[in-house]
Amino acid sequence: MARRKTATKGDIREQAILNTARELLGSVPVGQITIDMLAAGAGISRSGFYFYFDSKTAVLEALLDDVAEEMGAAARRWLDGSGDDPDALREALAVSARLWREHGPLLRQALLAEDPEFAEFREHVVRGYLNQVAARIARDRSEGDALPGPAPERLAQALVRMKFAVFAADPSDEAVDTLCAVVRRSLYG
């Protein structure tokens, strides 16, 4: 007979640390969050914390990796496509907006505050995303689907930074529609 997989005590404690971090990020700047705060919020000792994570940065990276993975999966259809595809673009932007609503404090600090705690995340994840957007722009231009303009890397950087700034301030459906229109007009006229 197959046994049901249930969360272990360790899984529950690890999740409690992550949940505490999410909660704290809503009201405490990342630089002021301590391991003691994370451990206390999870109901474990400071030494117990180190059984699950080796640093505060590791906790923050775990949170960001989950968000980045979901954003990347949602954007895949648009990034891998070609030509003007408003449905794929809107779908990707809508997921990003939802994630900004759910994880805004974390994303603001990781992507906009230039906090050194997130330097590696920004370099790895954001750089990878920028490269994918630039490749999409270059591909559409080479196929004659997109307008000529600034270098794909520069345009990708402007569009992605704009997306971060807009969603940091207003991750609404109206913002999704606005960004969709701006991206489409920038690329396809």
Rank of each mutant, 00 (worst) to 15 (best):
I35W: 06
S47Y: 01
A134F: 03
L130P: 15
L79E: 09
F167I: 00
A169G: 14
S82T: 11
D145A: 12
L111V: 13
A92M: 04
A165N: 11
W78P: 10
G128S: 06
L159G: 02
A175R: 04
L155A: 00
L18M: 11
L24G: 13
D66S: 15
T20W: 01
G10D: 14
T178H: 13
P150S: 06
R122A: 07
Y50Q: 08
G81A: 04
A146F: 11
S96T: 13
M37T: 01
D65R: 02
G41E: 08
R77S: 09
D115I: 03
C180I: 09
E120W: 13
E123N: 15
T8D: 05
A62M: 03
A62F: 02
L64D: 10
F53D: 11
G43I: 00
G128E: 04
L147N: 14
R77L: 09
A165E: 05
V28T: 14
S82N: 12
P105Q: 11
G83Q: 10
Y50R: 10
R101L: 05
A113S: 04
G81P: 12
E91S: 12
W100S: 06
A16Y: 07
K9T: 13
A94I: 01
E143A: 11
A169M: 11
A158D: 08
D80R: 12
A39H: 00
V28L: 01
E102T: 09
D54R: 10
T57R: 05
R98W: 14
G48Q: 02
A175F: 07
G81W: 08
M37Y: 00
E69C: 09
Y129A: 14
V183G: 02
D170H: 12
A181Y: 07
A75E: 04
L89H: 04
L89D: 02
G144R: 09
A138N: 15
V59Y: 06
V166N: 06
P150M: 01
M37Q: 15
L79V: 09
G104E: 12
G104P: 01
S55P: 00
D177S: 10
A39L: 03
D54W: 04
A134R: 12
D85S: 08
E14Y: 02
A113W: 01
S172E: 04
A75H: 09
E23Y: 00
L99D: 14
L159T: 02
A74V: 13
V59H: 08
L89C: 06
V176Q: 06
N19L: 12
R184S: 08
D87L: 03
D65P: 06
A75C: 00
A134P: 14
V160N: 08
C180W: 04
D170T: 11
E102G: 05
D36M: 03
E69A: 06
F164A: 00
L25S: 01
S45Q: 05
G83S: 08
A119R: 10
M71R: 15
A146W: 06
R77Q: 13
D65L: 07
D140N: 12
F49N: 09
Q157N: 15
R3S: 14
